[in-house]
């Protein structure tokens, strides 16, 4: 059985359709990039897979769990146990420093552990920025904190929504290299939304979306 299975997902926002019946499967350990113009429904799809949003109809299975049927608290539990999110705007808590931002995610998961948080930040190369607040860090550094935060609870699924959208090419490359290294070492599944053709070259598979449906689905040949 596939790691992620989507069956005929429809999402409506009022009269507008964000998704018009999407079905697909993703295997465990796969790195999938979702591309498409803005408004094509790619972020909505990502959020539904990550349990941040619920479909109007259709079924979502992650590791065999039917997440569209979970209660709100079970869904919160699913998010903290299974997923790690990285957003375009970094969404860090402004009054907490780098370590504390990572620890906050640990706290919601089980308990805050400073050593582990420092370890997570070291893995993303931020060991020299532990006590800095987000406002004192560059965009690339902020995104790296987000990746450290997303990975600190050992998720099986990393979801990234335009993680490099606010970054220059150099920083983008650094983030992608980091993701690639972590992916090859730890084998979690990555789903990444982007509209940048450069970014979509990374990974193993590209889904093209348009107007709420999947237009094409092709593997990337390295």
């Amino acid at each position: 059985m596939s790691f992620i299975i989507l069956k005929n997902i429809v999402k409506e926002y009022g009269p507008a359709h964000a998704l018009r019946g999407v079905s697909m499967e993703i295997q465990k350990g796969q790195w999938v990039n979702i591309m498409g113009p803005s408004g094509s429904g790619k972020s909505t799809l990502l959020n539904i897979i990550g349990g941040l949003d619920t479909p109007t109809s259709g079924e979502v299975f992650v590791e065999g769990i039917k997440i569209n049927a979970l209660s709100e608290d079970d869904l919160a539990c699913f998010r903290r146990e299974k997923t790690g999110f990285v957003f375009q705007q970094s969404h860090l808590v402004p009054y907490l420093d780098a370590v504390e931002n990572v620890m906050l995610a640990q706290y919601f998961h089980s308990m805050a552990d400073e050593e582990e948080a420092v370890g997570a930040l070291t893995r993303v190369g931020l060991e020299h920025r532990l006590k800095h607040r987000p406002s004192q860090l560059s965009g690339g550094e902020q995104q790296r904190i987000c990746i450290a935060r997303a990975l600190t609870n050992d998720p099986v699924l990393l979801l990234a929504d335009e993680p490099t959208g606010n970054l220059d090419r150099e920083n983008t490359k650094m983030i992608l290299e980091l993701l690639k290294k972590l992916h090859s070492e730890e084998h979690f599944t990555i789903i990444l939304v982007t509209h940048d053709p450069f970014v979509s070259q990374w990974g193993e598979r590209v889904l093209m979306m348009e107007d709420g449906s999947i237009k094409s689905d092709a593997p990337i040949n390295p």
Binding site: P94, Y95, P134, S135, Q142
Partner: peptide
Amino acid sequence: AIILKGAE
């Protein structure tokens, strides 16, 4: 620049 980065 600092405000836009999320500082307060």
